[in-house]
Nucleic acid binder design. Structure first.
Lengths: 360, 360
DNA sequence: TAGAGCCTGGACAACGTTGTCAAGCACGGC
DNA sequence: GCCGTGCTTGACAACGTTGTCCAGGCTCTA
């Protein structure tokens, strides 16, 4: 009846007054009901076709498919999610989407999610605990199946109800604060210790350490690695050689210049992450003679500088991949106790770490 | 009432019968109904509290809040979205989340979305048209309010029903194929022309061009810019100096080596994007004498190489910001015809582009 | 003191989908 | 000729939220 198949697209029936009073609907799109009406079949049959369920005759299926294309129908996944419970999506809270260190991690997580048929929602905390919280909880409200978090804050008890409710949660790069949860980390302590030991092996005694804010776990661990390496070699540490704080270029620049000046300057620098390393390199490049430097995190083009930059590299993609795989294993029901996975770092020798002490 | 608020967390509280009687539901999350029962109020009142709507006495509000915390309730946004029609989320399809060029773009989009209270869903097309399509349509099924796409494919007619249904759509970095839609681009043609002219001004006559696949709009435009600059100076172009194709290091390396060898090698290279530039730099770094080079896209550390790398820089963050702002303007109802915004590029002179021709 | 108005709270019907269940039908075996 | 069997199909009730609308109870005024 009146199924004249010439309605060009007209998704929503214009009938304005339903008894319950429809709320103002913005993009009215065709629904399965519209498709069913047009194809002259039942609602459930459309659902079956859309989901590739068996039990539909080729002829019926064709009619439905035609109606779908004609109307430009696309299944509303919000409704589907509501009905099914699972969303096939994971949330990733990281520190800065634009940071070259986190970008490959992001990509690796996406890749694993894709293999599992899940979409990725993400956001940057900008190293702000409150924003991390907002993001993570917003993702939970969207009912992500799982959550991967690079912690900015130090207290993750706010996630307890979510985890209890079944949101698989894995922390990456830094451990969770005040709750027991899965975590995938790099060996910051061991990596820094190895990097600093490398400088010591090349004759350095006065080594500066510039790192991120001390409340950040990796920064603290790397400093601990620095101290361990110095202690291993029985070298004293003058506290003026150690500087933790913001990685803003101005601060790093000032600290590097301070350490490299004066009557007894440091002869080498160990820099605590990629952002610090870049700024430190800009400082040392201006000096009359090169300064030995080892940085945590690899840098693109590090091999092309002269000397090449010796770094302690983490495998960011592997961090992400490992975390995501752990997450999906949890989702598939692995109910063991929370695990902490620690991935090794790798010292990449390129020249800057092998320079001898300058005027010593 | 036995509202003792001492239930530690217990999402599905095992206590079967509180006076209002929270239904003992296992494996599920508490809903507004549960909260209402526990607080001894109606469903809509809970909704009002959760959404900060007026018309609730402080006392009632407190009771509801207590129930919310006690049960660990979190609003189910899928249901909310289903009811309200708007999802407060935008989808971003880019080429590679891990590419240092796209990461800031991603971040900029996120930032604008955040300012508008929207979440960001994203994915990498890996330069594969089919995957771009899958992602974009999956986002549409999630009923994103808007879509930002860095096209991989050349035919976007598949998005027509979505756009007609009200999904605001903006293309970035490259224009849409076969449909009329908003696009935010960099001036690839002008940028390349300027970069190549710069080399010509420094005495080069034989200049190689290595770029991305010719089907990619930016690659084609940059090649066009190269040819225009050569034509402007009345210089002939030997087709062996031009190479478009995959940006895989092996190919780029081979092409660069080929162009720089032989009896009449090119004396300078213009590289079509950041990935090509990096590989080309690795090749030229091994040569006995430096080769003049200008690259499209800026690189981190480009200033620290010697010589510094002269580049034609695009402002990726600005691309993202502009696109996202345009998107939200559309969402707020700006119904003008699709626009094409073109952002200028900037030549950053650092040394590599000013080297004179070698053995000419 | 009664009537009018305001404020709070709750019942109910959507939103678009999927799971359950039963009806309708053709076919084949006894 | 009858009934069971297998298949396709559709009616209906959820899922958890929000918009509408109405019922009380309260205050304020005449």
């Amino acid at each position: 009846m009146a199924d004249s198949a010439d309605t060009p697209r007209a998704a929503g029936s214009p009938a304005p007054a339903a008894p319950g009073g429809p709320p103002p609907r913005y993009g009215t799109r065709p629904t399965m009901k519209d498709v069913a009406a047009r194809a002259g079949v039942g609602l459930k049959t459309v659902s079956r076709v859309v989901n590739g369920e068996p039990g539909v005759t080729p002829d019926t299926e064709r009619r439905v498919q035609e109606a779908i294309t004609a109307l430009g129908f696309r299944r509303n996944d919000s409704a589907r999610i509501l009905r099914k419970g699972r969303t096939a999506s994971v949330g990733l809270v990281l520190e800065d989407l634009a940071d070259p260190f986190y970008a490959p991690l992001n990509r690796a997580v996406e890749e694993v999610a894709r293999r599992h048929g899940a979409l990725l929602i993400n956001g940057s905390s900008a190293e702000d605990a409150e924003r991390e919280r907002e993001l993570a909880l917003a993702f939970c409200a969207r009912r992500v199946d799982g959550l991967i978090v690079i912690p900015a804050g130090g207290d993750h008890r706010y996630l307890e109800p979510e985890i209890a409710a079944g949101v698989a949660t894995v922390f990456v790069d830094r451990p969770a604060g005040l709750i027991d949860a899965d975590a995938v980390l790099s060996d910051s302590f061991g990596g820094a210790r190895e990097g600093v030991a490398h400088l010591i092996a090349h004759g350095h005694r006065r080594i500066g350490f510039i790192g991120d804010q001390p409340r950040i776990h990796t920064a603290a661990e790397r400093l601990r690695g620095y101290r361990a390496a110095m202690a291993d070699a029985s070298l004293p540490v003058d506290e003026s050689w150690v500087s933790l704080g913001s990685t803003a270029p101005e601060r790093v620049r000032a600290e590097a210049e301070r350490m490299l000046a004066g009557p007894r300057p440091v002869t080498a620098l160990f820099t605590g992450n990629n952002r610090v390393t870049v700024t430190a390199l800009r400082v040392t490049a201006r000096l009359p003679r090169p300064v030995a430097l080892v940085g945590f995190d690899d840098l693109e083009l590090a091999d092309l500088l002269s000397p090449g930059v010796t770094v302690v590299a983490q495998d960011a993609a592997r961090l992400g991949r490992t975390a995501a795989e752990l997450l999906f294993r949890r989702l598939e029901g692995a109910g063991e106790a929370p695990r902490r996975v620690e991935l090794p770092t790798r010292l990449i020798v390129r020249g800057s770490g092998e320079l001898p002490p300058a005027g010593d």
